[in-house]
């Protein structure tokens, strides 16, 4: 059974500097791939390349065995993206943002209240996101991960702006996702206490 996502002979330049060359990786269902490296080593660019936001100089990404170029839709239906920017509108409140999110990805509406309660956001649903703290905004982005049915999570530096409670929340949520058979690619330079099948790729 071939890997869920695999990268073959990936190469990327930033200006004249070669970030990585002939990079290979494979991710199976239920697995976590950690992308390590110092700041500016191209972790974010690698994730954005895998997701299809930028083009590699060379190399290909395969989704369920066949090349990704051409049929992105199936891949993106399964993908949930968590990045440095929250990805929600500051002027809208939490429920309005989530309703818009439903027009893009399929949600299981039933669990919205439960997820918000778990993330400690259930009292803040009427406030525009602008008035939430940075940590709370990260939890709002986590709400998108929990509510989406996508099997693949891609997270870029999930721990920034999070206190220790937030950090353990991310670890717990990620472990549950892996336990349910989901898979994830996480770019971080901080240690992750994750139980489960973990692979690592380091960009020197």
């Amino acid at each position: 059974m071939n890997a869920l996502i695999s990268g073959h002979d990936l190469c990327l330049f930033r200006g004249d500097k070669c970030l990585f060359d002939s990079l290979e990786f494979a991710l199976n269902p239920g697995q976590l791939l950690i992308v390590e490296g110092s700041n500016g080593s191209g972790k974010t660019s690698l994730l954005r390349g895998i997701a299809g936001l930028l083009e590699f100089e060379q190399g290909e990404i395969h989704w369920e065995g066949n090349p990704l170029r051409g049929h992105y839709q199936a891949f993106r239906a399964d993908l949930t993206w968590f990045a440095h920017k929250v990805g929600f509108k500051d002027d809208l409140n939490l429920l309005e943002n989530l309703r818009f999110e439903q027009s893009l990805h399929s949600f299981d509406e039933g669990s919205v209240t439960a997820v918000l309660a778990r993330l400690g956001l259930d009292l803040l649903t009427e406030l525009p996101l602008r008035s939430l703290s940075a940590g709370q905004q990260r939890r709002v982005a986590l709400a998108r991960m929990l509510l989406s049915k996508g099997r693949v999570w891609m997270m870029d530096e999930p721990f920034t702006n999070l206190d220790s409670a937030g950090r353990s929340l991310v670890d717990a949520v990620l472990s549950e996702h892996l336990a349910n058979g989901g898979s994830a690619i996480v770019a971080t330079h901080q240690p992750l206490e994750i139980v489960g099948d973990v692979k690592r790729v380091s960009l020197s």
Binding site: L53, W81, H84, V86, D90, E101
Partner: peptide, 10 residues
């Protein structure tokens, strides 16, 4: 605010 990434990845 990053919602353009979400649009492109939807």
């Amino acid at each position: 605010d990053g919602s353009l990434d979400q649009l492109l990845l939807s």
